[in-house]
Design a protein around this nucleic acid. Structure first.
Lengths: 128, 128
DNA sequence: CAGAATCCGTCATGATACTG
DNA sequence: CAGTATCATGACGGATTCTG
């Protein structure tokens, strides 16, 4: 029974969920946010991130690889010893960061509503 | 050494990530999208969702409860037999849906870029 | 009808140790 | 320096069964 239009919409939210889940994963936004301007080296980036929250190199590596695969981050390796690898944002990554900031602003803006709702819900759950 | 401004920003994305991670889960967007207009009953909602992807009542219940706690969804139970429970969007839920749609549009717009990046990355990984 | 209870597999996160 | 290898774990999604 599902008409063509419904299928189109289905597509849409599937894609949206992918994006949201990436935004919402534990690290992507933070990493993109920390790379931002000029290229950063791996350990340098790790330290910047750890200013906010500890991250293992395993997780950092994996997330960076995903972001690279998604075309948001560019990885440039120099064939020197010791190794030098620089990460930067692609154009898409930069656009994504800008857009992510809008989303952040939205959530911040409605933070109070979210909070209020949670408190309200909790109090009702208690009185059961 | 991190200045006040950095801390503010840190706060921002931490909060935003919390909210986004809730909404970026496997079901929230889809459920909100399916509730949309008028109130829907539980089983009705379940069937609508299953038009897109199978969901167990356990997961549906749990996600709905979270969304209710976040103030996005309103649950109204009628004391009748058999039970009748209706779910609808709150104002915040409605605003979120609108906002999610903007995100959709953004991702649709850059979908080709994402695809291209992935293909490019894959081909490089293979040739390795 | 609208869930709750129970159980299980998978995946993301993470700590730790090691290496070219 | 920039990772990889290994192992552990906890949250999430899901299948199935039961109930007021």
């Amino acid at each position: 029974m599902s008409p063509k239009r419904a299928e189109e919409s289905d597509d849409k939210y599937v894609i949206a969920r992918e994006i949201l889940s990436r935004l919402g994963d534990r690290w992507s936004v933070l990493i993109i946010y920390m790379i931002n301007g000029e290229p950063v080296r791996f350990t340098e980036l790790k330290r910047k991130i750890e200013g906010a929250r500890p991250i293992s190199s395993r997780v950092l590596t994996r997330t960076l690889k995903q972001l690279e695969r998604d075309g948001l981050v560019l990885r440039k390796a120099y064939p020197v010893v010791p190794p030098r690898v620089e990460y930067s944002l692609t154009q898409l990554g930069q656009r994504f960061l800008n857009f992510a900031m809008e989303i952040l602003d939205w959530t911040i803006e409605y933070r109070a509503d979210f909070e209020a709702a949670r408190v309200e819900f909790e109090s009702q759950a208690t009185r059961q």
